[in-house]
């Protein structure tokens, strides 16, 4: 069995969860700090603040999703034993993980900043909640596209 192949694939899978997770953690922190500031003044805004804070969390989930996808493809889940892949296939899987890893990482941070700004917005104008949700969601679009790309690429890789 060519171990380089499976190593590369696992490296990619690890990065998908790791980088996207890091991005989400930072994004949620940025939004959370802003939310805490608003809630010191107005504790009743907890629910809307929480929704806005949760928005940059999806990237981490997308990363996790891709990681499991890869693990499943490699047969590493459920104890059935790994499938044999060569280094070429491993590199392909690695490449397929990159969109979600990189875009997830960076977009979550920026989505967090947008969420933080939106939280400030609803602090002054609670009725603008709809708009406040849409602004961060605009950033997330690219994470969704990256997720889609990663999924389609992974499905295309033959193992």
């Amino acid at each position: 069995m060519d171990l380089l192949g499976i190593s590369l694939a696992l490296f990619g899978a690890a990065l998908a969860t790791a980088l996207a997770g890091i991005g989400s953690a930072i994004g949620i922190q940025v939004a959370g700090t802003s939310a805490a500031g608003v809630m010191t003044e107005d504790p009743d805004k907890f629910a809307s603040c929480l929704i806005l804070q949760a928005l940059p969390g999806t990237q981490g989930i997308y990363g996790l999703l891709i990681t499991f996808f890869v693990l499943n493809k490699l047969g590493l889940l459920g104890g059935g034993g790994a499938v044999a892949i060569n280094w070429n296939q491993g590199l392909q899987i690695f490449a397929a993980c990159m969109p979600v890893a990189l875009v997830g990482w960076i977009s979550a941070i920026h989505q967090g900043k947008t969420s933080a700004a939106s939280i400030q917005m609803i602090a002054k104008k609670p009725e603008a909640m709809g708009k406040a949700i849409i602004l961060p969601a605009m950033v997330e679009t690219y994470a969704v596209l990256a997720l889609l790309t990663s999924i389609l690429m992974l499905m295309g890789v033959q193992v």
Partner: peptide
């Protein structure tokens, strides 16, 4: 609109992961 696929896919795969973890 490709997000419709991605999100539906997302729910399905997350559900799959949970069942897998439960099974394990």
């Amino acid at each position: 609109y490709s997000r419709l696929l991605a999100l539906g896919f997302g729910s399905a795969v997350i559900g799959m992961i949970i069942n897998l973890l439960g099974g394990m």
